[in-house]
Computed example of a mutant assay.
Amino acid sequence: MASRTSNFCIDAHDPRAQAAWWAQVLDDFVPDGEDDEDEAGLLGPAGRSLLFLRVPEAKTVKNRMHVCLRPVDRSRDEEVDRLLGLGATVVDDLREDGAGWAVLADPEGNEFCVLTTQADEAGVARS
C-alpha cells in the first residue's frame, strides 16, 4: 500500500495570521482550534490539513510546491478580485481569452494559483 497525505506544512512568520487568512480563502478548511505561537492549522476534507509552522527566516525564492485553487461559485476573475481584496498580490497573470490562470501570493509571499472553473474548462455556460 502507498502512503496517504496527512497534512501540508507551510512556513510562516505568523502562523496564526496565515491560518486566519487561508481560512477566509478556503471554504472547505476550518481552524483546528489547537494553534499556538509556533503553529496553527486548518482542518480540511478527509482529515487532511494545512499546518502553518513558525520559521525565523523570510521566504526568498519561488515555492517548490504550491496550492492551486479552483473557484466553485464565482468565476476565476471574480475569485482573483476577492483574494486581492483579502490581501493577496499578483505574482504573474497568465489569464488570456477565458483560459489560463493567475499566480498570486498570500500575505507572507507564498505563491498559489487561481484556475478557471470546471464549467469553464468543460465549455459549459454558467448561469
Score class of each variant (00 low, 15 high):
F8D: 05
F8H: 13
F8V: 15
F8M: 14
C9T: 08
C9M: 11
I10N: 04
A12C: 12
D14N: 11
D14K: 06
P15Y: 11
R16M: 14
A17E: 09
A20S: 07
A20G: 03
W21P: 00
W21E: 03
Q24V: 06
Q24W: 05
Q24D: 06
V25D: 01
V25Q: 11
D27H: 14
D27V: 11
D28T: 14
F29N: 07
P31A: 15
P31D: 13
P31M: 15
D32N: 15
G33L: 13
E34Q: 15
E34T: 14
D35C: 10
D35H: 14
D36P: 08
D36R: 03
E39G: 05
E39D: 04
L42S: 10
L42T: 09
L43M: 04
L43N: 03
P45R: 14
P45N: 13
A46K: 06
A46Q: 10
A46E: 12
A46T: 10
L50Q: 05
L50W: 04
L50V: 08
L50D: 03
L51P: 07
L53C: 12
R54C: 04
K59L: 15
K59V: 14
K59H: 11
K59Y: 03
T60R: 06
T60E: 06
V61P: 01
V61L: 03
V61W: 02
V61R: 03
N63Y: 00
M65T: 13
M65D: 05
H66I: 00
V67H: 02
C68M: 08
L69G: 09
L69S: 10
P71I: 01
D73A: 14
R74I: 14
R74W: 05
R74A: 11
S75I: 15
S75P: 14
R76Q: 07
R76K: 05
R76E: 01
D77F: 05
E78G: 13
E78T: 09
E78H: 09
E79G: 07
V80N: 06
V80D: 02
V80P: 00
R82D: 03
L83G: 02
L83E: 00
L84G: 05
G85E: 11
L86W: 04
A88M: 06
A88Y: 12
T89H: 06
V90R: 01
V90S: 00
V90T: 01
D92P: 01
D92F: 07
D93V: 06
D93C: 08
D93E: 07
L94K: 02
L94T: 01
R95Y: 03
E96P: 01
G98E: 02
G98L: 10
A99Q: 14
A99K: 12
G100Q: 06
G100P: 01
G100Y: 06
W101Y: 15
W101L: 15
A102H: 07
V103I: 13
V103Q: 10
L104F: 00
L104R: 00
A105L: 11
D106N: 04
D106H: 07
P107Y: 12
E108F: 05
G109T: 12
N110Y: 12
N110M: 08
E111G: 00
E111W: 00
F112K: 03
F112A: 05
F112I: 02
C113L: 09
V114P: 00
A119T: 09
E121N: 04
E121H: 03
E121S: 04
G123D: 13
V124T: 13
V124D: 11
A125F: 08
